[in-house]
Amino acid sequence: MLNYAIKRIGLAIVILFTVMLSMYAMVFLVPGDPASLALGPRATPALKELLRERMGLDQPVLIQVWSFFRNAATGDLGYDVWSKRPVFDQIMEFFPNTLALGAVALGWALVLGILLGCAAVVWRGTFMDRLLGVLSVGLISIPAFVIAIYALLIFAVWLHWLPAIGAGQPGDIVSQIKAVILPAFALGIGWVGYLARLVRASMLEVMNENHIRTARAFGLPERRIVFRYALRIAIIPTIAILAVGLGSILSSAVFVETVFGRPGIGTLITGAVQKRNYPVVMGTVLFMTAFYLVVVTAADLLIARLDPRIRDVFRG
């Protein structure tokens, strides 16, 4: 297990390193000077020079890469070109909102998804099973931001049930909960369909396995078989997907956050992209990638603990 853990963590570090390096390479491979692009055609040379200095572009390339890595390792992601605030501080200010949104979205999707998946297994082969199948595919395919806009129009603009914009007042938990409901609904609904499908498929597979047949032969009640033995194994692919899910849900939150004007990583990075604020974009992408890698690696290790077969596959 320790061996596996070291290999897996090592791989994550190598990947993060490669990602950083290729992002840096990209900036230099693209023609045009980032400072002039950010300032537009009418900027004076002196202003450009100032901005170049602030972005660290006046240094030799290798020095830039080295200092970027060294600083990133200590949590220093550079400074916002325009406001001069540390990028890391801005990320820390916005990230909790995004994390809360992602967690609520994935949370309700998980509960409903597992329920629907189990229901489909109970009703397997019937019309209801088929209907749930079509519904799941439909939910997966509709873009979250279209649902977000429809939800905003219906529940905030027409019915006035919930706030249309923002993340609620700081310290006022009720307003924060109210503000998270619509975005989390829009963001999570695709995952309901996906998880329902996943749980159904892996449950059906597990129900055919030998140890379930053995449990049946021993005369254990069906409910106990499903919840004690089948779900325990059927949940494993769900955990793996949930980790990937948290990563991808936080990045697709970009669109939903924009629709609801919710201060978060999405609004931070889109604003920075529109203003070509390199340090903020690079820092945010790096932070999100690192976060994603940590979650995915942790999930892989957890799965290896739950299911020894995976460790063996990795070794072989």
């Binding site: 990947i15 993060l16 990602v19 992002m23 990209m26 990563g247 991808s248 936080l250 990045s251 697709s252 970009v254 669109f255 990075i269 889109t270 920075a272 992209v273 070509r276 604020n277 390199y278 974009v281 690079m282 945010t284 992408v285 999100m288 990638t289 994603y292 890698l293 995915v296």
Partner: peptide, 13 residues
Amino acid sequence: SLPMIMFALAVIT
């Protein structure tokens, strides 16, 4: 391992 939309935004920048 790069979140798709984050990567897209980086390239667009």
